[in-house]
Design a protein around this nucleic acid. Structure first.
Lengths: 272, 272
DNA sequence: GTGGGCTGGTTCATTATTCGAACCACTGGT
DNA sequence: ACCAGTGGTTCGAATAATGAACCAGCCCAC
């Protein structure tokens, strides 16, 4: 593993519940030597990827990432476009919705919205990368991706996150076949216990999946009627998201979803 | 210079006008060997900091930075807070406003807003880091920072961006003294020709400057009355921004601005 | 087609950089 | 005064980065 990766992996240790991390904690969490971590952190700091609290000397994410995000969003505004769609979907179904982009063999969260109209909410940390094999988003994406990706992912050990996580490659292959038929993926407590989710793929140009969108529901609320309502709304949101980001639905999928309701117009203010 | 810095500097080559860069162009722009650049890029790609267009093989900024920005903003929402303030200021004064955070010895843009009500507009690229000695933002920040920073910045060669850029350290020191008296910094075509700007410091906890906010006006519109109006509005916006981000104005500055108008309430919708 | 000029990408011996155990210096609690 | 915990630094050994040379593909002109 190269030095660059070692340094960048430090950034993944930050999370919503751990926004500041000290040197020793970094060393523990990353399993690397304190001196090494310190050199990496100072170099990241020189480039603005982390900054150091002058008093506590703890590190947190720095301003450079804000600048880079602005650059990406100015020219390729995926997040800006997806946000109102996810917001609308969350309002429609009254549950937590999120979308992610494929990054290597994981999903990188882009945005989530939680209407918070219920007593119980689903936990979601945008810092946390999502596995492909244990989430409805991931399986939906795999189902429509070139087979090589699925084979590569299923060909390695599949960690179980709950006791309902599917880890048998051949069974997962049959699930993917079902998802291809259906267009969406329904998953029950495979990543978080107590949480059911419905996910579908977001397509880029050429009809190749670039990410996924999904709705997460506490298992106690996941009645059949509710799931059906979610599936309908999700199909509409995915179609809208794919078109708005400049992607194209593959013809089979478009045909499959022909009877999905037209997407509702969303509030476009407050962008960027 | 370490390997990590070499790799991260590649990311700074992206800009609003150059959102995608090929391997050879990267090598040329960075002045490094093609093989080296390629290794750095693949490692950045593995970590999601860049992604490669499958057809053109050009690289662009990847999804990881979106995720990291979300994490930072979830726990330390500087941008989310500054955005409506900058928007309001831009509406009030009818000119381009922006705010930046200190990153090493440069300013890293965080947000800008341009009401675009005039025929001529000021160019602003959020990818571009701003120098401290040649911008009103930078000088305003330097004036209120611990003297060591100013000495360090003024102690090295100061590039001129226009023929009006101030590059004489001792003269700049006198400018800083004036800014300390005044609270704001007025600069005429020092970074962009044809552009005047007024900037002031944003303070963090302990009253130490963490960034700056400024208004940029085409020189042809920079009449005395307009500048005065801008100065008043800017003082209000800075006070509001400093308080909202959890900072404190130093006592002298608070006294200096005691007669600035109370900040107007801003639209808080569309956050994140 | 074929040659040239341009890509992106790979190889491998040389070289320079990174690594990490041991070492300070400081802080807060007992 | 002590200890246990920080953040930070040093320097020889070990490792990883480097870049000239090398493919392979693409596109255009001839």
């Amino acid at each position: 593993m190269g030095t660059i990766t070692k340094a960048l992996e430090l950034l993944n240790l930050f999370s919503r519940t751990k926004p500041e991390i000290g040197l020793m904690e970094f060393a523990r969490l990353s399993g690397r030597d304190k001196a090494t971590v310190h050199r990496h952190l100072t170099e990241l700091e020189e480039n603005g990827f982390v900054e150091q609290h002058p008093q506590s000397r703890a590190y947190r994410l720095g301003p450079a990432i804000l600048r880079l995000t602005a650059v990406r969003e100015a020219t390729h505004p995926v997040r800006r476009i997806l946000r109102p769609i996810v917001d609308t979907l969350a309002q429609q179904v009254g549950e937590l919705c999120h979308c992610s982009l494929l990054q290597g063999e994981m999903l990188s969260p882009v945005y989530h919205a939680d209407p918070m109209i219920h007593g119980t909410q689903v936990h979601f940390d945008e810092a946390e990368m999502l596995p492909l094999h244990a989430t409805s988003s991931g399986l939906a994406l795999l189902a429509f991706s070139p087979p090589a990706l699925a084979e590569h992912v299923l060909g390695r050990p599949l960690p179980a996150y709950t006791d309902l996580t599917l880890t048998d490659p051949s069974f997962l292959r049959s699930v993917l076949a079902d998802v291809r038929q259906d267009g969406l993926c329904n998953l029950d407590q495979a990543f978080d216990s107590e949480v059911c989710s419905v996910g579908g793929p977001l397509f880029g140009p050429e009809g190749i999946p670039i990410g996924a969108m999904s709705v997460a529901v506490p298992a106690v609320r996941a009645k059949r009627a509710k799931i059906d309502e979610i599936r309908t709304a999700l199909r509409g949101a995915i179609r809208q998201a794919t078109v708005s980001t400049g992607g194209t639905l593959p013809r089979e999928t478009a045909a499959l979803w022909a009877n999905a309701p037209a997407p509702t117009l969303t509030d476009q203010r407050g962008l960027t």
